[in-house]
Amino acid sequence: MEEIVLEIEDLSKTYKVTKKQQKVMNTTKREIKAVENLSFKLYKGEIFCLLGNNGAGKTTTLRMISTLIEPRSGTIKMNGNLIEENKNLVKEKIGFLTTELKLDDFFTPNYLFDFFGKMYHMNKEEISKRKEKLFNILGIDRFAEVKIKKLSTGMRQKVSIAISLVHNPEIIIFDEPTNGLDIVTTREIVVFLKTLKEEGKTILISTHIFDVVDKLADRVGIMVNGKLVYCENYREIVRENRLIEDIFFEVFEEEKNRILR
């Protein structure tokens, strides 16, 4: 039987709507549901791709799992334990990367890696070993002493990825890790994520790029308007000879029509 590392059950999150927002959105609702009754499981060593359009609730979901924000209702369990009961343990086990991350221009990858290593209470030797490995795999080693402002967008993203993995986490949560990258860097990151999977890491990524899903996913979840409207094993999709792109637009249209009705 497959080991469940993360179990999300009936998760909901609402945001208050200001009067100004009500006018812009043409609504009288005082709250909007960013995530609604979301449930899914993450099995050890798999890559779960959360697919959805902008505003579908992917980032909110990942932030709730990473303990950055709290759900309004529902539970998140890591290895059978509720995450709110031991947030620090969760933080040790999760490596989180946000899509908006822009590292400080003044620092070098070397400095930032050391800094975040210390934030995880790692000693010098541990940081050094981890740095050597990650910088080598991601091709950062040649740029280790170059300031972030002088690095290309792709190299900056690789540095961000390395930093989020400094503490060798069991679960990796990346919010749109290939967003805005060229095809070469995207491929390098996809290959790197596969390497992490081979190491036994459990990976949850959000994306809206179908190609990334095709190359990485063990399972796919599609979110529309805060709901998980589709969740399937990728092999099953391939077996049925279907394209993830077609499935996405099918369920997206269905959900849109359901709301209009």
Binding site: L68, T98, L103, F116, H121, S164
Partner: peptide, 14 residues
């Protein structure tokens, strides 16, 4: 906050 580095800092056990 603008650069998103605060989110990464807040996911550490610090």
């Amino acid at each position: 906050k603008e650069r998103g580095t605060i989110a990464i800092l807040l996911t550490t056990p610090v």
